[in-house]
């Protein structure tokens, strides 16, 4: 029983990180039907930025809590803004010119950009896996704070993943549903020409979408760094693959679906690692994807057009 709960907790933490990245896929797909393959790399760039801020600040886990928290917040903002701007720039430089081109053209461009960004990653931090400083103490909340007699670990880094991710997800949802800009995004997603006729600046709205997706990816970069303590230039590929799967699983274009898809994948992966042989995990994850596409082509939650953006 303990093992099951433990496995689910680990799966949940991984799932949240996947969900944050999946949002970027789903936002962009929702508005311009482009699968932005460079998105995984945006996440990698975000985590590199966070690492740079943390190393420049020179803090380690021995510094006082306050100093560490300040640095974490700074790193989070830097990673989000940087990843967001890069995503915005990629759209401005490459995808915008292809807005009216056949769909395959921006897709291939996105694949090309993922290579460009990977190589920027190598140039920036080298090709080796890097240790991301563990700024969060590995304290087990259940035993050390709540004094429960249990073998289950629920550590501060795991709590951190949830505490940062959940508000971001809610904030994004609120933004898309309740603000003017969010309304513009939804309108653009439904019909770009009609939206333009209604006076919506379509290009600006699309840029905003890329910015938002990048912000989420940047946050995921920092969160993953502090949780998994390791970054490497090609981490974006696998993460992007999982996130894309999560987005499709939940119904691509659907925000809630992407989050649920991410959590679902995290849980499936963890359960497979824990109860089956670990070498089957990717096979199981993608088998789930294939099954969902075959039997429910619109994803678990289906596509809610009004929600889409």
């Amino acid at each position: 029983m303990d093992q099951l709960i433990q496995t689910l907790l680990f799966g949940l933490s991984n799932g949240f990180v996947i969900a944050l990245i999946a949002l970027g896929y789903t936002l962009v797909y929702g508005i311009i039907q482009l699968i932005n393959f460079a998105h995984g790399e945006i996440y990698m760039i975000g985590s590199f930025m966070a690492l740079t801020v943390i190393t420049t600040a020179g803090v380690s886990w021995t510094d006082p809590v306050g100093a560490r928290l300040v640095v974490i917040v700074l790193a989070l903002m830097a990673a989000m803004l940087f990843a967001g701007s890069i995503n915005f720039l990629v759209d401005r430089v490459a995808y915008r010119r292809l807005r009216r081109a056949p769909r395959l053209a921006p897709l291939i461009t996105a694949i090309g950009f993922s290579f460009v960004l990977q190589n920027i990653g190598i140039w920036w931090k080298g090709a080796r896996p890097l240790q991301f400083p563990a700024l969060l103490p590995p304290t087990n909340i259940l035993t050390d704070w709540l004094h429960l007699d249990t073998t289950i670990t629920f550590s501060i880094p795991m709590l951190f993943v949830m505490v940062v991710t959940v508000p971001l997800l809610l904030l994004l949802r609120w933004f898309v549903r309740n603000t003017r800009l969010g309304k513009a995004m939804r309108a653009t997603a439904q019909d770009r020409d009609a939206a333009a006729l209604m006076g919506i600046d379509v290009n600006r709205t699309i840029s905003l979408t890329f910015l938002l997706g990048g912000l989420m990816a940047g946050a995921a970069g920092l969160i993953n760094g502090l949780y998994n303590n390791q970054v490497v230039f090609n981490m974006g590929f696998f993460a992007g693959l999982m996130a894309f799967t999560a987005a499709v699983l939940g119904g691509i274009g659907n925000l809630t679906g992407a989050v649920l898809g991410g959590i679902f994948l995290g849980l499936v992966g963890a359960l497979s690692d824990s109860y089956l042989q670990a070498q089957w995990t990717p096979a199981i994850v993608f088998a789930v994807l294939v099954l969902v596409i075959v039997f429910k082509p619109s994803g678990l939650l289906g596509e809610q057009v009004a929600d889409r953006a």
């Binding site: 990180v17 696998f238 963890a270």
Partner: peptide
């Protein structure tokens, strides 16, 4: 894979 915690739990 980015994480082996579940495997290690087993």
């Amino acid at each position: 894979a980015p994480d082996y915690r579940a495997l290690m739990t087993k």
